[in-house]
Design a binder for these strands. Sequence first.
DNA 1: GTCAATACTGACAGCGCTGTCAGCCAGCGG
DNA 2: CCGCTGGCTGACAGCGCTGTCAGTATTGAC
Lengths: 344, 344
Amino acid sequence: MPKPTIDDVARLAGVSPKTVSRVVNREPNVRAATRERVQQAIAELSYHPNQFARNLASHRSRLIALIYDDPSAYEVPSSGYILRLQQGTLKACRDASYELLIHPCRYNSRQVVDELRTLIAQVRPAGIILAAPLSNMPKIVASIEASGTPLVRLSPGSEIPGHRVVATNDREISAEMTRYLASLGHHRIAFIKGHRQHKAVGLRYLGYLDGLRGAGLERADELVVAGDNSVGSGERCAEQLLQLPHPPTAIFAANDDMAAGVLRVAARNEVKVPEELSVAGCDDISLARQIHPMLTTIRQPLVTMAERAAWSIIDGAVDDGPGGGMEIVAGTIQYRESTGPAPD
Amino acid sequence: MPKPTIDDVARLAGVSPKTVSRVVNREPNVRAATRERVQQAIAELSYHPNQFARNLASHRSRLIALIYDDPSAYEVPSSGYILRLQQGTLKACRDASYELLIHPCRYNSRQVVDELRTLIAQVRPAGIILAAPLSNMPKIVASIEASGTPLVRLSPGSEIPGHRVVATNDREISAEMTRYLASLGHHRIAFIKGHRQHKAVGLRYLGYLDGLRGAGLERADELVVAGDNSVGSGERCAEQLLQLPHPPTAIFAANDDMAAGVLRVAARNEVKVPEELSVAGCDDISLARQIHPMLTTIRQPLVTMAERAAWSIIDGAVDDGPGGGMEIVAGTIQYRESTGPAPD
DNA sequence: GTCAATACTGACAGCGCTGTCAGCCAGCGG
DNA sequence: CCGCTGGCTGACAGCGCTGTCAGTATTGAC
C-alpha cells in the first residue's frame, strides 16, 4: 500500500489539501472544528508529510547543521563535549521534526572556508550551530554569515554585538561555587586562574572575586595563582599553595584538568580530600567522575545550550537584532566527593 | 542572484535538462563530448543539484541513518565509540554526497520500535546503519527489516545469515596479540575472559587459544579466569592471578576496562608494568591512552567498519543475498607502554 | 438592517528534478 | 535498397507539498 499523501487526508476530511497543510504546519486561521477533523483524518491514515516535498515547495530545509571542531584530529577526543552538543540539538530537532546534520571540521585546515561554502550550497540548512572553539574564529564566522544562512554561535563567554550567541553564566556560577565553599566553613579559598587567552576562564576569576565578596571574605593575593589550563600547571599551582605558611583549605580551579592536578598533588602529599582540603573544578569533563575522589565541579549546560540554539533557528529568532542576540543558560554545580566542611 | 538550476546548465551546454541529469548521476549513454560540455557548464555556473528536488523526484533520499544506543543514558558515555562510528559514516557520506542522520535511542525503552518506525516513515532514509549493541537485538532488527529499508548491522563478532553485517576479525587479532606477547619472551600468558553473553568477547578467547598454539605454548587452566567486563572484575581476576604460586608474566584481558583493573592491582601491589608484568587489553577505549602506563590494546577498526557499512548502502549492496552478506574489517594492535620483554 | 473588516478556505501554479517513453541517427545484415 | 538493432537524446508529466491570491463566510460597528 502506498503512503498516504496530503490529498488522501484532504479527501477523507472533506477539505482542501491546503487546509491540511495549514493544520500540519500549525498555521493560524483554521476553525477549531476543521482542525479537529483534519487531525482525525491524519491519525486515521497515520499520515506523515513528505519532508522532501515540503522542503522543495517551501524553499526551506528542516535541517540544522551542527559544526564543530573535528575531535578525531586530536589524540584525546573531547568527546563528551560533542556528544552533549549533539544531544541537545537532537532534542530540539526531534520535537520540531527537524533533522540534524553533523559536520566536524578541522579549524586549522586550509580549506575550511571552501568546505563550509560547499556544505551550505549543497544542503542549504535552515541554520547553522557553530560550536566553540570554531565559534570564536572570525574567518569561519564571516564565511557563514556571507552566505546568509542563520547562524547561532555556541560560545561560553564571548560575545559579538549583533550576532546570535548562546552562552553560559560562567561568572555567576563561579561566584556561587565560591559562596558554596565559604558556606562549608572555608575562609581561605584559593583560586587557580586559567590560560589568559581563554575568555570564559577569565570570567570565572571575576566570579570567584564576586563570590568572596558575597561571602564577606577578604581576597588574599597569595591565594590566587595562575595556571595554563593543563593538569601539570594545576600540580605546580597546588604545590605552591600547599607550601604557604597558612595554606588554603579549599582550592577552586578554573577548569577540571587543573583541579585534577591539585588532586594528584594532594594524594602525593597525603593530604586528605575532602577532610583536609576541598577541591572544586569547572567543566565537568568525564574525567571528573572517573577520578577519586570524584570532583565537585561546574557543569556547563551544554545540552541545554545546544537545544536553545537549535530552537532559535527553528523559531527563526536568529536575526533578532541587537540586544536579543545573546542568550544565557545557567550552569549547575555538581556536588561530589572532593568538597566538604572545612577542617577545624 | 538565484542559484543556478538544471535548466540553466542545460541552456548553457545546449542540451536538454535530462541530459544534464544523466551526467550528474553518472548514467551511461551519454556521448563523451556531450558529457564534457555539460561538465564545463556545471563548473562554469558552479551548479549544485537541489537535493530536495532530487529526492522528491526519485523517491530515494540520500540520507543514511546511523542508529546507536543513546550514550547519555549512562553515567560514563562510551563516546569514543560513537564518535568513531560517526566519523567513518561521515567520510563515506561526504565522498558520495550523502547526508548523515544520527539517531541515538535507548535500547531498553519501550517505544524504541515505534520510534524507529516513525523515523523511517518521516525521513525514508536510503539505508540504516545499526551499531552494536542494538545490532544484536532481534526486536529492533526485525522492526527495521519489516519496513524494507536497507539495513547494515555493525556487529563485532555476530552474524545472521542473509543479513548484511560488517564485523571485525576479533579472533584473528586476539591470536596475533597473544603471539606478540609470546614473541616478547612471555611463556605464562594469562587471559581474562569477558562476560559470557558478549559474543565478540568470546571470540577473543578462542583467538587467545589460537595464539598460544601458534606460539607453541601450552594452555594452563589456572591462567584463564573469567571476569564480567567491568574494571572491578579485572581487579579481582588480577589478584587471583598474581597470587598464583607461579604467576603469569603477561595478562591479556578481553576488554580495556578489565585491563585497567589489572593495572590498578599492579600499582597497589607495586608490581612494575611492563618490567615485571605485561598487560594488554582490547577495544582501545579513550581511557587506554589516559592511564599510566598507556595500555597496549587492540583497536577495533570502527571508523573503517562504519565507512564500509555506509558504502554498502550507497552502492545498494545491502541485499547481496547470502554469502556476500558479511564483511570483515581487520583490527590493529596499538603497541603502547604496558607491554614489554618478559622478566628473566 | 447595511457595510466594512476580518476569519476562514480553496484553486492553482509551480518548487527543481527524474522516470518513462518516444524519436533520432548510425551501422549493419539481408 | 529496406528494415532493424542499439546508442544517444529530449519532451513531458509528475513527485507531494506550499505560496499566492481570490473567493466566501462570519463578525462587529453603526
